[in-house]
Design a protein around this nucleic acid. Structure first.
Lengths: 144, 144
DNA sequence: TTTAATTCGGATATTTTTATCCTTTTTATT
DNA sequence: AATAAAAAGGATAAAAATATCCGAATTAAA
């Protein structure tokens, strides 16, 4: 459903949020260990998330990745997905037609529309905050 | 959402169904032209569909691909997707955890479950017959 | 039985995605 | 100002997905 890059990006952002609640910045090494991902590749994804203002970073000694506490409830899953995979998931045609529309629909246009909208809705409604709190409470897990 | 291979497979199967209603077999060349796909790659996908008994083929002169008329209403979108992309869409974890389950869920486990089940349901309910009839009636399109 | 038309299957090429490595830039501390 | 720690960014490598090519096997018809 999502690319590997996006999977890592979501898990990394959740971990950064948890650490940011504690007021500590984290390194790609620490993140990769926690979410069980390749470190260098994860670092690249973090760069993309910074560029898209999902998270922020501080270079140099005592630097690392963080996210402002007051932004955590405002960041939605959709923001993370969008920063990494773009909006193809919502907007692209299910069968790859270049000009798929109501007036020139692909064979699965309507059937997919419902699924897509459900997905879009879920991504836009789900906040980083609730995902992070579930991890903190032990209700969900970032690896294995 | 789906792989290119799967997109081609779905469109190819629909076209084969339409031609099979007319009692004529079709070649990869004709199919590729009709669905706007790379011919040789499409041929490989057709082989996979034959191996999984979604469609059937006849080698040699006057051969080609076809699907028995009485099977058209029985074949579901899910059969085509399964033959090409497997069942990762329904069963894999949304965030790539190896052991994602009710008792050890990833952060988006429940939210994805709903989407997944909607998708699965749709794929299992949608028949090749209705897709083919929509193309025949001009209600939907296979290319552009 | 020969021929022509066709799918099948293996080998290979290209492109995209995933992953790694190394140098440069930035920054807090000493 | 010097130093050490860290992200940024570019170059490269490996793996997977997409795509092409060609010879072998099969088949219907002449």
């Amino acid at each position: 459903m999502f690319s590997k890059a996006c999977e890592y990006g979501i898990k990394a952002t959740i971990f950064i949020a948890i650490k940011s609640y504690e007021g500590v910045r984290v390194s790609p090494k620490e993140i990769a260990k926690e979410i069980d991902s390749p470190e260098a590749f994860t670092a690249k994804i973090l760069q993309a998330l910074v560029r898209h203002d999902v998270i922020s970073s501080l270079k140099g000694a005592y630097g690392g990745f963080e996210i402002a506490k007051d932004r955590i409830p405002l960041v939605k899953l959709a923001d993370i997905v969008n920063a990494i995979d773009g909006d193809a998931i919502y907007n692209g045609c299910g069968l790859g037609l270049h000009k798929c529309s109501e007036t020139h629909p692909c064979p699965v246009h309507d059937k997919f529309k419902a699924i897509r909208e459900g997905l879009k809705d879920m991504l836009e409604r789900t906040s980083l905050e609730e995902l992070a709190l579930d991890i903190k409470s032990g209700a969900s897990f970032l690896k294995v």
